[in-house]
Write a protein that binds this DNA or RNA. Structure first.
Length: 888
RNA sequence: GCCCGGAUGGCGGAACUGGUAGACGCGCCGGACUCAAAAUCCGGUGGUGGUGACACCGUGUGGGUUCGAUUCCCUCUCCGGGCACCA
């Protein structure tokens, strides 16, 4: 055995062995318990970043651990390969997105291999390949048939200079990111998926998903946003209102009927409320700027029209919406209170959203903070109708308590009713009048999947002048995206690709035009975890192997996907369940969200000009002469740079660490060990060059310990019955360590403490004598436990050390070692003695000592005596094997 | 505003079910090896007082429960994340 640890050679050899033996190719085996461990697949951006390394190491540790514990494991990998960055790179370099993407995939695949992840590459999938995305198209056609996919007009950001649609993140302060032109809103037809039909089920199931973090479940519940309330109507009769022309739904109220322009139209203004118990406190109604009644009122009112335009434009930044000042303007229209029949003025309010509920609210200034603010500003009446005991109502200033539930007052027949009783009674009375019913409203919107982009999955429809929009027949799938186009910044290049565009209408055969919109890339990632079970199937989307491998036993990824990706995946799984393709509705049994990787950020801010960021690898940090202050200096020019604190690694802050440099210098095992040791996996991880050194040092010490042991020659077999006290203690620690590592990886997922335990074992072993033959046998066992226990985390070096410890077979096929219960047994234990809650003594006592013995031993201790003194002992609490607590 | 986390040495973190606070690592200090440095190895390292054994203080704040609280309950402060004029 070589004395020096040389990671490059060790790692190449281990990886070559795994490759040749095809160790990680998973086979279905109904006789064995499967374990499907999946890490979120990467976007092929060019190179791996530390976030990938952390994510995939967590998955790899679990995969290898479960494999050793007898599970039939599957850990696949693929590429989320469609998307905007490829188009941007194409524009910058004049290379087709396909080439850029496949080059990146080749490079990153080599990186993943160099990190030694136990991935089944035979199932690799790439979403930009027609073998994959044809099934996006296939399922989209099924969704059209099922009515889940539908067409609707949507609003997009339009860059008038580039003549292209911009994604939200390409709009900066209302301007195009490339052209700096003012972005316009354009209405175009788009496809939507009816995820809202599944809102109730998606929300309800969350509460049973014990394998998901509470945080993620809360975020999804928030996002779905269920509100239970009442949809109620305020009847009106308005002169000259064109109900049909304004798209107002006629009917719903008593005496409503069709009316043409200039007639008196009867209608109902609908509003949604969760507080119908405050109905008798309504003093106005407010509608959104886009509301048809507002449009009507603005026809002959230029001031109102101008105000509505102002509201529609809104603040550039969305976060400002919530804080902007409330503004409004009366429409001059009046509706009737549904129960009191009083006249209620209708206002346009900038705080009313057209996209939520009915686009109109009933104004109850006494019990809603926003309505209160609005009423104060425009001097509208404030009528308190809810009484909370111990609270005086004042109309001068708002108190959050005014929104509390309470008892109705000033509300006629409802006086005295508590919240729920009031809601029930008022809803029943509204229902009898046909002016209201209980309703549930959702924050969740249907999922718009159309993107006016080239590098995505084509939406399989054809536009025919006579037949309209016609779905592509199934036998014509896939609609293949041309891969040789280069976007030039002037819109979707598919629009100029005659070969792609021209197609006969499937219905009438006449010349027609292909849809050029592509699908949101979230579509690609909404079902890839299913496809890994049957990636080679070219006849159907899924097959019976899915039933064996799915649901995913452990899904691992970043918290940034807590909402969209995970919610869309749950939705797609439900659709496939409905189609009969799946027997389950939830795709991920257990979810693990790993923390971000942080690093210090260094910068200089010239008096004029932009802040310049410097990569930490190019910065030297030292202590100044007084050792009080850290000084950061750029190596290139020797001048100082400022530290901006420790933040998430990102391109924009230039504080990323290149995993490749790390692997090249220290090896994959050090990279893996550091990322697993520096913090618990769900917490943020702070980068530390010294910490990496520490990880490297530990592996070297492990190597050295095995080397020194091996150089002493083969040890005698372990004879458990012939051990002395120190040998038994060493063995005990070995098996305690094994038990801890098993529990920490298998149950707690605290890899950092598992590693700490292994370090302790090695520290103890360094002090353990090697004089007698059985010392060496105990050492052999301890080293084997350390090597096997650490093998999921540092698989390469342990692969080599296992051979050096005298084993002919490979570690990868070794089962997880069992804990020897006999080794854990001990004859004496240390107990602590407290006097009035303070630690006063530690005693070594027989492990099976009874309460009386412990009590007597504790009281006899001189230091305990000193603190008890002459005081009478009031109480003695004895916890066997742990402590004695004396109260005086 | 609502919802979810969090706060422990110089730093990252440990203490799992209420029972020895600070495991493990980093950094720092001292020593060995070396002509020297690096690497490596050994020892020390929460604060205060004491030559010392030891004592007192100490887990964001204030209170409570308990023989005993980093851990449970209440209050407040600060930090991170999600949602947000959501009616």
């Amino acid at each position: 055995m070589q004395e020096r640890y040389e990671p490059a050679a060790v790692e190449a050899q281990a990886q070559q062995y795994w490759d040749q033996q095809r160790c990680f190719e998973a086979k279905e085996d109904s006789g064995r318990d499967k374990y499907y461990c999946l890490s979120m697949f990467p976007y092929p951006s060019g190179r791996l970043h530390m976030g990938h390394v952390r994510n995939y190491t967590i998955g790899d540790v679990l995969t290898r651990f479960m494999r050793m514990n007898g599970r039939n494991v599957l850990q696949p990998m693929g590429w989320d390969a469609f998307g905007l960055p490829a188009e941007n790179a194409a524009m910058a370099n004049g290379v087709p997105p396909a080439k850029w993407t496949f080059d990146n995939i080749a490079y990153m695949k080599a990186q993943l291999k160099s990190l030694g992840f136990a991935l089944d590459w035979s199932r690799e999938l790439t979403t930009c390949r027609p073998e994959y995305y044809r099934w996006n198209q296939w399922l989209f056609l099924r969704m059209l048939e099922m009515g889940i996919a539908y067409q609707k007009t949507g609003v997009v950001n339009w860059d008038p200079v580039d003549k292209t649609v911009l994604a939200n993140e390409q709009v900066i302060d209302g301007r195009g990111w490339r052209t700096n032109a003012l972005v316009e809103k354009r209405e175009i037809p788009m496809y939507y998926l009816k995820i809202t039909d599944y809102a109730e089920d998606l929300l309800e199931t969350l509460s049973h998903m014990q394998g998901w973090p509470e945080r993620v479940r809360a975020m999804q519940a928030n996002w779905i946003g269920k509100s239970v309330g009442v949809r109620l109507g305020f009847p009106y009769e308005i002169e000259g209102l064109d109900i049909a022309g304004l798209g107002l739904a006629a009917g719903g109220g008593p005496g409503s009927g069709a009316a043409g322009p200039d007639a008196i139209a009867k209608g109902v203004l609908h509003a949604f409320t969760t507080r119908v118990d405050t109905l008798m406190g309504v003093t106005f109604c407010a509608v959104a700027a886009e509301h048809p009644l507002a449009t009507h009122a603005a026809r002959d009112n230029p001031k109102l029209a101008a105000f509505i335009e102002e509201c529609k434009r809104g603040p550039a930044v969305e976060a400002e919406q919530a804080t902007q000042e409330k503004k409004g303007m009366p429409t001059g229209l009046v509706v009737r209170h549904p129960l009191s029949h009083e006249a209620v003025p209708v206002w346009v309010g900038n705080y009313v959203l057209m996209s939520y509920g009915e686009g109109a609210v009933m104004g109850v200034p006494a019990h809603d903070e926003r309505d209160f603010e609005f009423a104060k500003k425009y001097h509208l009446p404030i009528k308190p109708v809810i009484e909370v005991p111990g609270r005086e109502y004042s109309t001068h200033a708002w108190s959050p308590r005014y929104a509390d539930h309470g008892r109705c007052v000033n509300s006629g027949v409802y006086d005295g009713l508590e919240f729920q009783a009031a809601v029930d009674a008022i809803a029943a009375d509204l229902g009898a009048l046909g002016l209201g019913e209980k309703q549930t409203t959702w924050r969740l919107r249907d999922w718009g999947i159309s993107r006016q982009r080239y590098w995505g999955c084509p939406i399989p429809v054809i536009h025919c002048a006579t037949c309209g929009t016609v779905p592509v027949p199934e036998e014509q799938l896939p609609v293949v995206l041309p891969v040789n186009l280069v976007p030039d910044g002037s819109g979707n290049p598919l629009l100029k690709d005659a070969a792609f565009l021209a197609v006969p209408c499937p219905r009438c055969g006449a010349a027609a035009r292909r849809e050029t919109d592509t699908m949101d890339t979230f579509v690609d990632s909404s079902w890839y975890f299913l496809r890994f079970a049957c990636a080679d199937n070219n006849r159907s989307m899924l097959d019976s192997r899915v039933q064996y491998w799915l649901p995913v036993d452990q899904y691992i990824g970043g918290i940034e996907h807590a909402i969209l990706h995970l919610l869309y995946s749950r939705f797609w799984t439900r659709v496939l369940h409905e189609l009969g393709a799946l027997k389950f509705k939830e795709p991920f049994a257990n979810l693990f969200t790993q923390g971000m990787v942080l690093n210090e950020v260094f910068f200089r801010k010239p008096d004029a000009g932009r802040v310049e960021y410097f990569n930490p690898a190019d910065v030297e940090v030292t202590l100044d002469a007084t050792a009080q202050r850290r000084v950061a200096v750029l190596r290139a020019d020797g001048l100082e740079v400022e530290s901006g604190g420790i933040v998430t690694m990102s391109k924009s802050k230039n504080n990323g660490v290149d995993p490749q440099a790390l692997v090249d210098e220290f090896g994959a095992d050090t990279a893996r060990l550091f990322t697993m040791f520096a913090a618990p996996p769900e917490q943020t991880l702070e980068w530390s060059d010294e910490g990496v050194q520490g990880a490297y040092r530990f592996i070297k010490r492990l190597w050295k310990a095995v080397h020194e042991h091996v150089m002493r020659g083969a040890p005698a077999p372990l004879d458990k019955s012939a051990l002395n006290e120190s040998q038994r203690a060493m063995r005990r620690q070995s098996h305690q360590t094994l038990a801890k590592i098993t529990d920490d990886i298998g149950r707690r997922r605290t890899f950092n403490t598992a590693i700490a335990a292994a370090m302790e074992l090695l520290n103890a072993l360094a002090k353990f004598p090697q004089a007698q033959p059985q010392d060496r046998s105990v050492t052999q066992e301890a080293l084997e436990i350390a090597v096997l226990g650490l093998s999921p985390i540092i698989p390469h070096v342990t692969h080599a050390l296992w051979h050096h410890l005298g084993h002919a077979t490979a570690l990868i096929d070794e089962p997880w070692p069992p804990v020897d219960a006999e080794a854990l047994q001990t004859s004496t234990v240390e107990i602590v003695v407290q006097v009035n809650g303070k630690l006063r003594a530690r005693l070594s006592v027989a492990a099976d000592a009874d309460e009386g013995t412990l009590r007597a031993a504790a009281l006899a201790d001189p230091n305990v005596q000193k603190f008890v003194g002459a005081n009478p002992v009031r109480k003695v609490i004895v916890v066997r094997g742990k402590l004695v607590s004396i109260v005086v």
